[in-house]
Nucleic acid binder design. Structure first.
Length: 308
DNA sequence: TGCAGTGTTGCTTC
DNA sequence: CGAAGCAACACTGC
């Protein structure tokens, strides 16, 4: 599940491999929606937007990519911005691909020298940016939830305002004070749910919220207003620690995240709580067994002994 | 075999 | 208006 560390690694890869490359053409079998249209117009007009999308990105050069929460924004030379959200199973890959015209599906080219791109998760290609160096930037996404669109640069500010994203937890301006005041916007809600709210803090998802709460020793069902000062400080530190650890491990490939060269991350090998249901707590001298609880449509994992 | 589980986001419902 | 629930989709694992 691409969360902040996975999206950051993807953007780092985009900046390392695709800057200065020109987009010759785009292929897709997904509907491309126009973000500058109101939502109630989307279903009627979205299929028409593919032509507009091709016009917007065709012939433009990739300048740089940036991450905002779990969103990727790719700035092009012609004042167009490509907007990608990988949702749950989407990931971007850079390499040599070929279109099989019989099945209308894309596959790694037999001439591709990077074996990591032959990973079985990398075969569900739904968007292809054809570049001017005989390589492609592709979006692989089993479940087809990922969103890809483009808009003129002049719409950027209003789109960001509408997204209303919370502060970036790895930026210097993200102080303890900022963190606490953001959390306290939801005093009656459970801390686990508040951490997942992108308008409170940017980029945290199910994996890193479980890990941060485990390390801070805070029960996921505690409401924000019951937290005491030491707990806010502990959680502040463990949110940052967990996200940085995720980046240091190259992201989490529990699901099908890969970096843009096709390489999986390693964070899944060092989970303390996430998806460790029934396993012994790894905290020193703790006798707890990791337990799973449901929060509506998602699950939390925690140690009922040391998380209070 | 069949169906619950997987989790991000935004829309719908109450 | 806010919270809760569900849809979008496809594969995995029990």
């Amino acid at each position: 599940m691409p969360e902040l560390p996975e999206v950051q690694k993807t953007v780092d890869g985009l900046n390392a491999y695709t800057r200065g490359k020109k987009i010759i053409d785009v292929w897709t079998d997904l509907a491309i929606e126009n973000p500058t249209l109101p939502h109630h117009h989307q279903t009627i007009k979205s299929t028409l937007f593919l032509k507009t999308f091709k016009k917007l990105v065709g012939g433009a050069t990739i300048i740089r990519s940036e991450r905002k929460a779990k969103n990727i924004f790719i700035h092009l030379s012609n004042d167009t911005i490509v907007w990608i959200h990988m949702k749950m199973t989407g990931h971007l890959l850079y390499g040599s691909y070929l279109l099989d015209t019989n099945t209308n599906t894309w596959h790694v080219s037999p001439l591709e020298k990077n074996d990591a791109l032959r990973d079985p998760f990398n075969r569900f290609i739904h968007v292809v940016f054809i570049l001017d160096n005989k390589k492609q930037l592709v979006l692989s996404d089993v479940r087809k939830f990922a969103k890809v669109t483009a808009f003129p640069k002049k719409a950027y500010q209003s789109i960001l305002t509408e997204l209303a994203l919370g502060p970036e937890p790895l930026e210097k301006t993200f102080t303890k004070k900022v963190f606490v005041s953001q959390l306290q916007k939801r005093p009656k809600k459970k801390i686990k749910e508040v951490l997942l709210d992108q308008s409170i803090v940017s980029g945290i998802g199910n994996i890193y919220s479980d890990e941060a709460l485990w390390r801070a020793g805070i029960h996921p069902c505690r409401t924000v207003e019951t937290l005491i000062n030491n707990e806010y400080i502990a959680l502040y530190n463990t949110v940052i620690y967990s996200l940085k650890k995720g980046i240091a491990f190259g992201g989490d490939s529990t699901s099908d995240y890969r970096d843009i060269t096709g390489k999986p991350g390693a964070f899944q090998g060092s989970h303390e709580a996430y998806r460790r249901t029934g396993k012994p707590c790894r905290k020193k001298d703790c006798t707890g067994i990791i337990t799973r609880i449901s929060f509506g449509t998602r699950n939390g994992h925690f140690c009922p002994i040391h998380q209070k």
